[in-house]
Amino acid sequence: MKPTTPKIMILSASFGDGHTLASQAVEVCFRSKGIQDIIVLDLLAEAHPFLNDLTKFVYLNSFKALPSLYGWIYNLSNELRPEASFLRAINSVGTGKLKEAILRHKPDLVIHTFPQLALPDILKKSGQRLPLVNIVTDFDLHTRWIHSGVDRYYVATEDMKAEMVKKGVPESRVLVSGIPLRPDFQQDLQNSRPGLTGSLDREKKTVLLMAGAYGVMQGIREICEALLEGGQYRILAVCGRNEGLYNGLKSAFGDRPDLHLFGYVQEVALLMHASDCIITKPGGITLAESLASRLPMFLYRPVPGQELNNARYLKEKGVASIASDAKSLRKEIDDLLLDEQRLAGVRAEIENLRKPDAAEVIVGDILDQWFRPDTGTIPPVQIGSARPRLVIH
């Protein structure tokens, strides 16, 4: 049994903000419990900065230029077994840097918030024993998250757990925790809107429009034009790090009192709690934040891949709508926000999915399973021991 003050390593990636935010949420939760020895490693950025920048550039531009190509690659690789040479090649990127980090920091447990699973093979070859856990940061399950060397999976929904079990993952290794969010999403901000939103009254319905951390969602201007027509709604438009988008909207709508523009903001929870619904691209973290904030979601032109699959899942659950043009989006919003009975039904469905305390659940479970001598534990992985065979459909 390890000591009660373990050393934790979190492996993440900086594609968008989602994986980074999930890592930060878990780190903050560990520190709140007195566990200070935590290493967060962006493996690709540390090992291959140029390749990391190139990959991020291609990823972000795929939303504008070749979304169908990204979706094709995503779906094709999802049909592969974890042992497939293509996935093994992807996972091997950064192996040298990871070996060096493991030797230098000597962690007691490693958490993945991004499916870069080089470590199982490293441990197998070296004969080491080290607990590994995965925190899946989407509502869609991709094969890359699954590996026979992973001891514990933390997932967003019961449906994802069932899918994992169907693919051969032992049920005891999967916990439905939700996706970890920052502490401010666990607070009741409903009646406290200072700063960013303190000047807003509640006479009009407020629509939060989030273009993503890098402002890559398309059609923002058309959406603003459609929603401002008639003066029924107030818009909080968050442009992320896209200064061109911010300046373009300011130039086009700067004199419209119902449009409030923001660049990149940290106070997302505050904006969500000041809003009645959200229009966004369907990244896993933003969707989990929206659920935590009890916001009906309108998902605009989701690109093929995990975002389209996220959108389809939440639409199936009755908490999101998908729109491909500004006119139909406006109609979807009107139909929901102006129908109190339907709106109450959507919010009831949101309650079934929201898990604002996911970080607490994950950290508590990790401590219970591995680092508290008075509780039952999952045995650490014995390298070379038999594992149930994974069946990838």
Rank of each mutant, 00 (worst) to 15 (best):
K2E: 08
I8G: 01
I8K: 04
I8S: 02
I10C: 03
L11G: 02
A13T: 00
S14Y: 04
F15T: 02
D17H: 13
D17T: 08
L21Y: 09
A22F: 03
S23C: 01
S23N: 00
S23F: 01
K33M: 08
G34Q: 03
D42T: 00
E46T: 15
N52K: 10
F57M: 12
F57E: 14
V58F: 12
R81V: 13
E83G: 10
S85Y: 13
S85R: 15
R88S: 15
I90K: 11
V110Y: 02
F114E: 00
P115W: 02
A118F: 00
P120W: 06
D121E: 09
K124Y: 06
L132D: 09
V133C: 15
V133T: 15
N134H: 09
I135N: 02
D151K: 13
D159E: 15
M164I: 04
S177N: 06
D184N: 14
D188V: 01
N191F: 15
L196N: 14
G212D: 03
G215F: 05
V216A: 14
E222L: 05
E222H: 05
R234N: 03
I235K: 05
V238Q: 03
A252P: 03
H260D: 11
H260Q: 11
E267K: 07
A269K: 02
L270V: 06
H273T: 07
I278S: 08
P282V: 00
G283A: 00
T286I: 00
R294D: 04
L295K: 00
M297K: 01
Y300F: 03
V303N: 02
P304L: 02
E307I: 07
R312E: 13
I322G: 00
K327Y: 13
S328M: 14
S328Y: 13
K331Q: 15
L336M: 09
R342N: 10
L343N: 12
R347V: 06
I350F: 04
V363D: 08
V363Q: 07
V363W: 04
D368N: 14
A386C: 07
P388A: 04
